[in-house]
Structure formats: structure tokens, C-alpha cells
Design a protein around this nucleic acid. Structure first.
Lengths: 336, 336
DNA sequence: CTGAAAGCGCTTACAG
DNA sequence: CTGAAAGCGCTTACAG
């Protein structure tokens, strides 16, 4: 590597100006076809690398979109991310991924980094406790924000997610129809809109069925496979033990089923279990998991394309966009 | 947002030069303490946002490290990524994540993007078929590359990974000790070093035990939970069916166990199963999965810190660094 | 301890 | 269709 080749290197080699070279490389019709071909050939031959920092400094567009979620390893987010990636790829946007693990400080530092890099937009599953002001900071600095999975009260940012309360209502109603009257809700927390809304759906379905809710049925907290597994012993010690368990997510349900099996109980036979999300694994689990499809693909696609549209100049449309959930009945809620 | 505030905005407000402001914000001892405080206060009050593109253009350091793996949703990579993230965070490097899904074109376009953004380094689990020249392109353009999980023949880049052949040998030897003589190897492909090395370990252990390998025992291909699940019917149709199955990864093993259970067979009782990686889920699976701990945390930590050291000026040390695997005996290989 | 000036590598009006 | 020049917002020698 003798010298770094830049626009001016190519320009000099060809006896042209950097303006012409710049235009040609970006396929401007202003440049004559033959010139353009010569320039492109020279760029290729010389191993030219486009310097996006320089371009971005000049244009104040970076082609970068930041995406920050609780945990990218969670298949629920993973499935959303694939859809986002696909959509962003189509529009030649680079996306920068980050976990915030529900730590506000980590999320803030991510937003900061995106601001410093001059990112064009942000897709966020907001960390627990995110104040609207954190999102406004971004908007104020010309960094539009789109929310996924969760929403933030008072923030102008549009939110794309499944209809959590309706979805959970479906799951509970399904269990009621199977004859269950003692139904627990395992996992999730008051601290997120998801947790609150799913709990609301659960309570509504119970009320609708004329079942009086008992506080010990609500085992709040678990949101991972492991914590779902760990919730089992406590559940089994419940006096007048529920016959059915609605889990906050598939991950929690899958862990809970592992836990039940470990304790010698057969999910779907001894205890009915439902999940939420319908991740890929749900269908092959043992037993196959009854769950609520949460539209991950739609969430990702719509969020990304709303952002892309906004970058193109179209202002955001509606505030919140809810994707209709769909109940997937399999065997974990009762073997046939 | 009236006007964007930049260094010169602060400098003017305070009657100083941009040089002083720049120095002060980066805590240079060249600037008097009082001046520094005044500058920092003004920066905060005015909502100043550091423009990293401009700085990076000038210094040709970007503070960005690119990380590209087959699939970030795979918990094996997820666990590596967490370690990388932790290490990089400590050194205030932003990391940009990407899936290449074993598509060379996608990996190439990622390397290209990193080059254009002026990334400081690259951590790569190379896509199947990666030619050494792709990595050299990066190195030539001052983008040092570190490999994880897999290696690339002929590339100068150091590679951090578990000792695949030794690990698989451990698993097979364990099954042999339990009395198995017909042992299948499910998943993985010749196309990756991981696949080749693990197969080599498997063959070595068979040979060592005086067992003659039969081609139908090698069910190549599966590398996901789903494909592990799908491999079961074919396996069950094998005449003179193996009594034990070594799986290429935990994910494959977990899917395979789902498949066995679906077919009414009890993993660990009717068929012994082992995994590879010891991901978080292995210990709570039903039955708990016997597997080979593959040192994800170490891989991530060492890869990241080798890269950071290199950025600091220390050239790479050895070529390949192998982490010693460890057999974790649980119940899937035979209930006690 | 602080300032004036050049330059990183692009793109964008503006001229011709 | 092509070129000369300014400027994006920093940092880095160099002076003083």
C-alpha cells in the first residue's frame, strides 16, 4: 500500500477534476458515459475506497441506522431484527446493533454514539424507565426515532408492536374454554408496557369468564428461559395450585416446561402451558407450544419502512401501530 | 434547535480558540484547569454534540470495531458477543454487528462498509469459503482482522477458538466408555474448519476404540435447532441404528432431542445424545445435556483484547490460539 | 497556557 | 459535459 488513493488520485491519473470523478462514481447523468466508464475502471484498478466519513461530514447523511434492543440473543428480537435488516439492506443503510439490557445508561450512551456518528435514524425497544426526554434529545438533534415492542408515554415517537392485551386475552380465553378456572400468569413486569398490557389482557379475560383473580396467581418477574425454569418450584408450592399457566413469552414458557418436566410433571397433561410470541422453536418444542403469534416479522418490517420513509422526507403517520396477534393452538395447552 | 453547536460556537461564546476548546474537552493537561471547567460547563449548557466523523476524518481513527458472524441469534455466538462487547466497552470502542449467514457477498459488503467507515478493526467468524484475499484486502487497507470460531487457511489473521477436534474426541470417548459401539455424528459440514475438525476428532476417537467407522453414521448438514429436529426421522430409519449420537452443537442436540421425544424415544435412556458448546440452556434442558464446554467467553475476551492490543500498536502474537475444551457430563448421555 | 492556520477527503453550488 | 473553489467540523503541529 503505497499511498491511499482518493478522489484526487483518480482525478490526476485521468486528467480530470475531483468533482467529475465524484459525480461519475455516484452515477450522475451529468457525466458523459465514456468518462464515467473510464473513471470507474480507474477506481477499480487503483483499489479506491470511498471515504464515507468525508462524504458524511459534507452531506450530513451517514447511511447509518442504529438499532438498540434489550437483548439481541432473545429470538423474539432476533426475528424482528432479521426483518429490519432485510428492509434496511434494500435501502442501503448500514445498521448498528446494540444491547441495552434494560440499562438506561447503556441506552443513553448508545443514543449519544449515534448522535456523534451522525446516524440517520434510530430503532429502539426502549429500556425500562426510558423518559420521553431521552427520545426528544434524539429528535431535537435530527435523529428520528421509531419504537418497537414497547412504547414510551408522552414520547412523540411512533411505536410498532403486537396488540399485547388482546393477545394475552386470547390465550387466557382459550384456557378457560378448555375448562380451566385456576390460571396463573408467569413472567413479565409492571415496568414495561408489554408487561402491563399483557397482565391487563389476562385480568380482562378472567373477569369476562367470571373468575375472581387471586394475587398468588401472578408470578411476576421472569423474562428469560432460565428464569422461567426457576419459577417452577415456587409455582408447585402454591396451595390450591393452578391447573394452567399463561407465560409472558415463549422463552419463559419453554423454560417453565423444562422445569415442570424436571419435576416429573407433563406439560399439556398435568399442567396446561401457553407462551407468547410464537418464535421458531415453539412448533418443535416438546410438547409443541400453544402460543400467541406476535407478528415479529411485521413489526420489524413496518418499523424499518416507516423510518426509511421518514428519512425520505415523509413525516411519521400515526402514533402507534398495533399488529393483530393470532392464537396458535398446539399441544402444551392440553393434549388431544 | 436554532443552530448546530460546534467547537467554534463554544470558542466564540467564551472568547477562546477552537484548539483550546478541543483540547479541553479531551482533558488535555495543556489547558488550565479553570479554562477547562468553563469550557466543559459551556459545552454541557449549549447541548454540544461531538462530531466523530469530523474528528475521525482528521485523525483517521474511528473508534469503531466491526463484528461479523454467521448468525447473532445463535446462542453460541451470542455468548461470544457478550464477552466481546464487554471488552470493547472497556476500551470505549463502538462495535458494529452484522450477520453474514455464510454468504460471501454479504461478508464482503460488510468488510467494504467497515473500510468506508474507517473502522479500526474487524472481528470475524469467516463465512464458508472465505478466501484469504478477502482478509488481506482489509489488512492492506489498515483494517486488522481477528478470527473467531473458525480459521481461514493461508490468512495471516490470528484465530481464537476452542480445540474442536480434541473436544469432539472427548465426547466420543465418553460414549465409548459408557459402552456404546455404534455412534453417529449429526450435523456440521466439511465446508468449515469447525466441521472438519470435529469430524476428525470423532473419527480419531472411534479408531482409538477400535471401532470401524460406517459412512451412514455421518449425518452431515444440520447446524440449527430446527435442522437437528429434522434429522431425527432419517436417523431412526437407519438399519442397525446407532445407540448414541454426537451432535455438532448444542443447538443441533437440543433439536435432535425434541425430535426423539416427538418420536416417543427418551434421550438419555433409549438413545444417548451429546452436544457441543455448553450454552446456557444445556444445563436446564430435559434431560440435561451432556456437552463439551467450548469457552465462548474466553474466545470473545481474548479475540477482543488481542485486537485492542493491536490497535494500541502491539503486533499480533501467535497465529492460532486454541482454548481447551471441557467435557460436561449430564444426563442426556445416559441416565444414572 | 492559548491561538492562527492548515488539512483530513469528500460534495455542492456556481461558472463556463 | 467539466472544473475551480469553498466548506463540512474537527485536530495537530507550530508559534508565541
Amino acid at each position: 500500500m503505497a499511498q491511499k488513493v482518493k478522489l484526487s488520485t483518480i482525478a490526476e491519473a485521468l486528467g480530470l477534476s475531483t468533482a467529475t470523478v465524484s459525480l461519475a462514481l455516484r452515477d450522475s447523468p451529468l457525466v458523459a458515459e465514456v468518462t464515467r466508464e473510464r473513471i470507474k475502471a480507474e477506481a477499480l484498478a487503483s483499489g479506491y475506497i470511498y471515504n464515507r466519513r468525508a462524504a458524511s461530514l459534507r452531506t450530513s447523511k451517514s447511511g447509518i441506522v442504529g438499532v438498540c434492543v434489550h437483548d439481541i440473543m432473545n429470538p423474539f428480537f432476533g426475528e424482528i431484527l432479521i426483518a429490519i435488516e432485510h428492509e434496511l439492506d434494500r435501502h442501503r443503510q448500514t445498521f448498528i446493533l446494540c444491547n441495552h439490557y434494560d440499562a438506561l445508561a447503556k441506552q443513553r450512551s448508545f443514543i449519544d454514539t449515534m448522535l456523534q456518528l451522525g446516524a440517520d435514524g434510530l430503532i429502539l425497544s426502549p429500556a425500562i424507565g426510558t423518559p420521553a426526554s431521552d427520545l426528544e434529545l434524539a429528535e431535537t438533534n435530527e435523529l428520528p426515532v421509531v419504537l418497537i415492542a414497547r412504547t414510551v408515554e408522552g414520547a412523540g415517537a411512533p411505536s410498532f408492536r403486537g396488540d399485547d392485551s388482546v393477545g394475552m386475552e386470547m390465550a387466557v380465553r382459550h384456557l378457560v374454554e378448555l375448562g380451566h378456572r385456576r390460571i396463573a400468569l408467569v413472567g413479565g413486569t409492571e415496568a414495561t408496557s408489554t408487561g402491563r398490557l399483557r397482565e391487563a389482557g389476562y385480568l380482562r379475560a378472567l373477569a369476562e369468564a367470571g373468575i375472581e383473580f387471586r394475587p398468588e396467581w401472578r408470578i411476576a418477574g421472569p423474562r428469560s428461559r432460565h428464569s422461567g425454569f426457576d419459577a417452577v418450584p415456587g409455582f408447585l408450592r402454591l396451595s390450591d395450585r393452578p391447573t394452567a399457566v399463561c407465560c409472558f413469552s415463549d422463552l419463559v414458557a419453554l423454560g417453565f416446561m423444562y422445569g415442570l418436566a424436571r419435576a416429573g410433571l407433563r406439560p399439556g397433561r398435568d399442567i396446561a402451558v401457553t407462551g407468547y410470541d410464537d418464535i421458531d422453536e415453539a412448533a418443535i418444542a416438546v410438547p409443541p407450544l400453544t402460543t400467541v403469534a406476535n407478528g415479529q416479522k411485521e413489526v420489524g418490517r413496518r418499523a424499518a419502512s416507516a423510518l426509511v420513509a421518514r428519512l425520505g422526507g415523509t413525516p411519521f403517520a400515526a402514533a402507534d401501530e398495533l399488529i393483530l396477534p393470532e392464537l396458535k393452538i398446539r399441544n402444551s395447552s392440553g393434549l388431544d
